[in-house]
Structures are given as C-alpha cells and as structure tokens.
C-alpha cells in the first residue's frame, strides 16, 4: 500500500504543477524582454538591453507613470484613512448597524468593474466633474476601501485595548496615547494597507480607462501599446519592470503585516489561552 502511494503522483505533484501554471505567464515577460527578436517565440534570439533603454526615452510612458504614482499615492492615503476609522469602529465598538455598515464597505468587491466604471462616468459628468485624475482617485478610493478595512481590521484584532486604557490611566493625553501607543502598534498594519491599496490602484485598468480622460494612467498607456505588434518588446520590458516593482512592494507589505502580527500576536495568544 505504502509503495503504491509513493508511485502514484500525489497532491504534492499537483501542487508543483499548479505553481508552474501560475508562474509560467508571469515569468514569460522578463524571459523574452531581453531577446533581440521582436516576436515571442522559441528559440530565443540573442540578448539585449535595448528595449529597456528605449523606455527611458518614451515621454508618454513617463507621463503616465507619473499620473499613476499621483493616483496611487492619493488613493492609498484616502482609503487607508477611511479604513482606519472604520476598522477601529468594527473591532472596538458594538453599535447599531455595525453589520450593515461592514457589508456596505465590502460592496466594491462584488460589483462588476464595467458597471462601477460606466455608472461613475455618468454620475461624475452629471456633477460637472470631467474625466481627469481626481475622478480616477475618487473611483480608486472607492475600490480600495475594502482592502484597507480588512487589513486594518486584523491590525486592530491583535491590539489589546487595555494598553490604551493603561496609558490613559497613567496620565497620557488623547494625542499622546495615539502617538505613543496606538501608532507604534498598528503602524505596520497602516504601512501594509498603504502598500496594498497603492498596488491595487496602480494596476487598475477599467475604471481608469473610463475616467482618466486625456491623462492616461500606466495601465491605460499599456492598453494603448499592446495593440501594436511593433511595440511588443518595449511592452515586455515595461511589464518586467512593473513585475519586479509589484513583487518588491508586496514583499514589503507582507513583512510589515507579519511584524504587526508577531509584535502583538504573542501577547494576545497568551491572553487567549484557555
């Protein structure tokens, strides 16, 4: 029986194959971005860094990159602030309408993107807000609030309220408590929320496509490029850079999230011991 089991391809093999399936398309971009050939096909021809060098000269690309950084940065700050208040409310307070409020805040996750995009375009124009970067920021903040709330909720979950009470009892002011107790403890959660919401905004396409007008964000720029076969090598190079950047951001966010969990987790676990 045991020998039979060893011979049959098991779950472990499946897991390895599945990982290959997940990573194959993603790793394709960097692999072919150094190729001298202009189509993606085997065998790979030569090695060059030209495609990367050309990116630095593409003005529209650099402008759209700047637009995306503006939008991502503003979105991250706005949704993290909204999320911070909401998460504290949901974890610390038992109030009438809490569950409804939590449900509403998660709605952006379950409305198809095209409907959010088209309906916001209609509303914003009705209110006199032309498609522009502020319009994209408003839309992206809407989309990223659920991410901020979930991340910050787990930060508050790990945060023992007794610590704040103790600081008050010892004579700290409200601002002092926030600065010396609350911030150091949920700080990593805030950083993680900022990074994740930034990344979501940075990658978002459909809403930006509808709302950015004549100031394209990076995904809108990429969309305009991937239709032209001649631009393919540059798009691959750009995609590889974005890939490296996103992975770096995600790993940083993960590092902060874990620091938040281990810094507080130990204390909470000992408290929860039965």
């Amino acid at each position: 029986m045991k020998r039979l089991r060893r011979l049959l391809p098991g779950l472990g093999t499946y897991a390895a194959l599945y990982l290959a399936f997940l990573y194959l398309p993603v790793l394709l971009l960097p692999l072919f971005s150094f190729s001298e050939g202009t189509i993606v096909a085997f065998p790979i021809k030569g090695f060059t860094l030209d495609w990367y060098a050309q990116l630095g000269e593409a003005d529209t690309l650099l402008h759209s990159l700047a637009n995306s950084v503006i939008v991502g940065g503003s979105t991250a700050v706005l949704s993290t602030v909204l999320g911070l208040f909401a998460a504290r409310a949901y974890v610390r307070h038992r109030f009438f309408g809490r569950e409804i409020s939590e449900g509403i805040v998660m709605l952006p996750l379950v409305i198809p993107g095209i409907i959010v995009a088209s309906s916001m375009l209609v509303l914003f124009l009705f209110l006199g807000l032309r498609p522009s970067l502020p319009a994209v920021i408003l839309g992206h903040t809407f989309l990223t609030v659920p991410f901020a709330v979930s991340i910050l909720k787990s930060a508050f979950d790990e945060f023992d309220p007794a610590l704040e009470e103790a600081a008050y009892d010892l004579g700290e002011t409200t601002i002092g408590v926030f600065r010396r107790v609350t911030m150091p403890i949920i700080g990593p959660g805030i950083v993680s929320s900022l990074l994740v919401t930034f990344t979501v905004s940075f990658d978002e396409f459909v809403l930006a496509f509808f709302l950015s007008g004549n100031r394209p964000t990076l995904p809108v720029y990429i969309w305009s490029q991937i239709r032209f076969p001649a631009k393919l090598p540059n798009t691959l190079a750009l995609g590889s850079l974005l890939l490296a950047f996103s992975v770096l951001l995600l790993l940083t966010a993960e590092y902060f999230r874990r620091r938040a969990a281990t810094g507080q987790g130990a204390r909470k676990e000992s408290r929860d011991d039965r």
């Binding site: 993603v26 990658d203 396409f205 991937i226 974005l242 890939l243 996103s246």
Partner: peptide
C-alpha cells in the same frame, strides 16, 4: 503572481 498587472 496575482499582484502583477492584470492587463499584462
């Protein structure tokens, strides 16, 4: 992989 651009 999920955190890399959906478009790409």
């Amino acid at each position: 992989p999920f955190w890399t651009s959906y478009l790409l």
